[in-house]
């Protein structure tokens, strides 16, 4: 049994190793972008059925951002929505035979968690300036500054490990069951894996929102 913690390299170009995760991610990217291009070709004021579905997706993302962050969703929509969409599609790509989800490997999750970490800083600084962003570490009082600093790192690791553990465990369990009994037995586990994948994508996006909202200056939070 292969270690679930390592991903085999597909190509080795000099020092650059390109793993299957990167290839899978490229494929997912291509699919997502192509789908978006196809779907948004004929946008009109009077929506078709496809457009209604698209607008429902966008509206739902906006509503979630509004509910969770208590902020206008315009600036965060692309980041949060893309995170959710990518993780969702990546998790469910385990349906395709022979494909290991990119999120089942530590590197992709680490990249996502790193992006959330950077986004928290980026949006925090954008909203309140560097001073305002740093001031959010002193909430509720100055004693909490070290804890807040440590938390901002640990919650990133928590994010990473949560997504990785869920997706990897799902894939791992399905693999183990598959090695024991090949036919029909893994199907409930695969269904559970799909549910876990969807919920984890949702939770990842929600947590990203919560972290970003936590980096907003308190004045912005009250709005």
């Amino acid at each position: 049994m292969n270690s679930p913690l390592s991903s085999p390299p597909v190509w080795q170009i000099g020092p650059v190793t390109i793993t299957g995760d990167v290839v899978a991610t490229w494929v997912i990217m291509a699919v997502l972008v192509a789908a978006s291009l196809l779907a948004t070709r004929h946008l009109a004021l009077v929506p078709t059925r496809t457009q209604a579905v698209l607008e429902l997706i966008v509206g739902t993302v906006d509503q979630q951002i509004r509910d969770t962050m208590q902020l206008p969703p315009g600036r965060y929509r692309a980041f949060i929505g893309t995170l959710f969409g990518f993780i969702f599609v990546a998790n469910w790509s385990s349906l395709i035979p022979g494909v290991r989800p990119p999120t089942a490997h530590l590197e992709t999750d680490a990249a996502l968690a790193l992006l959330v970490f950077l986004a928290v800083i980026w949006f925090g600084v954008q909203a309140g300036g560097i001073r305002g962003y740093l001031a959010t570490f002193a909430t509720p009082n100055l004693v909490m500054v070290p804890l807040n600093v440590i938390e901002s790192v640990t919650r990133t690791f928590s994010l990473l490990v949560r997504l990785f553990g869920n997706v990897m465990s799902g894939v791992f369990v399905v693999g183990i069951v598959l090695s024991l009994a090949g036919l029909l037995v893994p199907i409930p586990l695969m269904a559970l894996d799909l549910l876990t994948g969807a919920v984890q994508a949702y939770i990842f996006a929600i947590l990203a929102m919560v972290f970003i909202a936590g980096a907003m200056p308190p004045k912005g939070n009250k709005q």
């Binding site: 190793t17 390109i18 995760d21 590197e107 992709t108 990249a111 790193l114």
Partner: peptide, 9 residues
């Protein structure tokens, strides 16, 4: 941890 993969992703 494959750093190249991390960067790529």
């Amino acid at each position: 941890l494959n750093w190249w993969t991390l960067g790529f992703q």
